[in-house]
């Protein structure tokens, strides 16, 4: 536990010194704020852009407050996720290639401690960025469109955080078996796209799919309901635990020297 904490502190210091703590939350905040702003100002934007025939009347129904935040969550789920993948792709593969991992693992440190320190640090960064993004979305929605129940906001954040946490776990797990950071990011995004595509299938067959969490978080915001959330939450948590276990084994089996 104590050595885990040393490694966790190292991870936090690293993401601080490499400015990840600055720009990841910043990207999420911008993504969060942009959606309510653009929906509110859409008529003015269209007018300024011009190109509409004289006298044309376009009625854009203003989005409900919940839908505005759900839309920004959707942005975070694509662009934000991409940023997380790019930031975390080198977490293990990069340290292995550089040889810095060897110098850590030659100390009496357990493989799971090494892995969990990274997992916790990246999740903390993700959580902070997501909360900031949601806060920005909520602030502008409340200001420009209308109020959103705090309970829906919190619940959707938690559901969405679990999904992003699973993505980070997949990213770290790929890092233990692949040498190239770019391949790690690509493989992770491939898995995410596949899961999301499957989750979009109609019917109950995909009720367990953790990629459903993204849609369920949005649904909670637009309707206030969270039916069907239990099953994907269970699979997501189980997958996170299983992936961390498998990644620890992979770290032991695959030499950590360049």
């Amino acid at each position: 536990m104590k050595r885990w904490l040393v490694l966790f502190r190292k991870e936090l210091l690293e993401s601080w010194r490499t400015s990840r703590w600055l720009w990841v939350p910043l990207v999420f905040a911008v993504l969060g704020a942009l959606q309510p702003l653009t929906s509110h100002f859409m008529p003015q934007i269209l007018e300024a852009a011009g190109g509409l025939p004289e006298g044309a009347v376009i009625e854009i129904p203003p989005p409900t407050p919940g839908a505005a935040i759900a839309a920004s969550l959707n942005q975070i789920g694509t662009l934000g996720l991409l940023v997380l993948a790019l930031v975390g792709m080198g977490a293990i593969a990069g340290e292995r290639n550089a040889g810095t991992a060897a110098l850590i693992l030659v100390k009496p440190v357990s493989r799971p401690a090494y892995l969990l320190a990274k997992w916790a640090a990246y999740n903390l960064l993700m959580l902070a960025a997501l909360i900031l993004g949601q806060a920005a979305a909520w602030y502008y929605t409340d200001l420009l469109i209308g109020p959103v129940p705090a309970s829906d906001l919190v619940a959707s954040t938690l559901i969405f955080a679990l999904w992003l946490s699973l993505v980070l776990t997949i990213l770290l797990a790929f890092g233990t078996v692949m040498r190239s950071p770019i391949a790690v990011a690509a493989a992770t995004i491939g898995v995410v796209i596949a899961l999301a595509a499957l989750a979009a299938l109609p019917g109950e067959a995909m009720a367990w799919n953790p990629a459903r969490l993204a849609g369920l978080a949005a649904l909670r915001l637009t309707t206030g309901a969270s039916d069907g959330v239990i099953l994907p939450v269970i699979t997501a948590v189980a997958a996170i635990v299983a992936l961390i276990g498998a990644a620890s084994v992979a770290l032991r089996l695959r030499p950590m020297i360049a």
């Binding site: 040393v6 210091l13 690293e14 550089a98 040889g99």
Partner: peptide, 23 residues
């Protein structure tokens, strides 16, 4: 090791101290 790979963003003192804590 043959190729000493250290974290470039750390100071020398921080690195050696961390190594000590890890032992």
């Amino acid at each position: 090791p043959q190729q000493v790979a250290l974290f470039g963003w750390m100071t020398g003192l921080e690195y050696v101290r961390m190594a000590g804590e890890l032992t």
